[in-house]
Computed example of a mutant assay.
Amino acid sequence: MADIFQNQLIDILPKLRVQALALTRNRTRAEDLVQDAVCNALKARDSFIPGTNFAAWMHRILRNRFISDLRRHRATTDIDTLPGDLLATKPDHEDRLAIKDLAHGLAQLPSDQREALVLVVLQGMSYQELAEVSGCAVGTAKSRVFRARRQLQTWMMGELPEDDRLREEAAALRRRLERTGARKSEEVGKGV
Rank of each mutant, 00 (worst) to 15 (best):
L119R: 05
D85N: 14
H59E: 07
N26T: 12
V138D: 01
D78H: 15
E178P: 11
L177P: 08
G124S: 14
G135F: 08
L9Y: 04
A2E: 11
E178A: 13
A56R: 04
R45T: 05
V121H: 09
R65F: 06
L97P: 05
W57I: 02
A98S: 05
A88H: 10
D92C: 10
L122S: 09
M157A: 12
Y127V: 02
M156C: 03
G51K: 01
G191Q: 06
I12G: 08
F48N: 07
L9M: 08
E31Y: 06
M157G: 09
M156A: 06
K184W: 05
R183S: 08
K100P: 06
R174E: 13
S134A: 15
L122F: 07
L152R: 07
E178F: 03
R179C: 12
T180S: 15
I67F: 11
R17T: 12
R71I: 09
L13N: 07
A41P: 10
E187G: 10
D112L: 13
L117C: 05
A55K: 01
A88D: 06
L82Y: 07
L119S: 13
T24D: 04
R63C: 06
L117H: 13
L86A: 13
D95Y: 07
T81D: 11
F54P: 04
V145A: 02
S111P: 14
P110D: 02
A55E: 01
R174G: 09
L9I: 09
R149F: 03
R165N: 02
L62E: 03
A55L: 01
V121Q: 12
R74I: 12
R167E: 01
D95M: 11
L97A: 06
T24N: 15
Q113F: 03
N7D: 10
M156G: 13
V34N: 09
N26Y: 06
V188H: 11
S143R: 15
K190E: 03
R45Q: 12
E31M: 14
G139Q: 07
L166W: 04
M1F: 05
V118R: 00
L9E: 04
M1L: 09
L42Q: 05
A182W: 06
T52P: 07
T76G: 07
E169W: 04
P110K: 12
R72E: 05
C39Q: 10
D112H: 13
T81I: 15
L42R: 13
E129M: 01
A103W: 01
R144W: 01
P14W: 00
T81K: 15
A75M: 09
A137M: 02
K142Y: 00
T140D: 00
T81N: 14
G105D: 00
L119M: 15
A56V: 05
E159A: 14
A55F: 01
F54H: 03
P161E: 00
A37E: 01
P161L: 01
Q113N: 06
S111K: 14
S126R: 09
I49E: 10
A30T: 02
S47T: 10
A141W: 00
A131K: 00
F48G: 02
L87D: 10
I12M: 03
C136L: 14
D69N: 15
K90N: 04
A75K: 15
E169A: 06
F146P: 02
R175W: 08
L130D: 00
V188G: 02
L119C: 15
Y127I: 00
L109C: 10
I12S: 08
A20Q: 01
R114S: 11
H104A: 13
P14I: 00
A141F: 01
E186K: 14
R179V: 09
R27H: 15
G139Y: 01
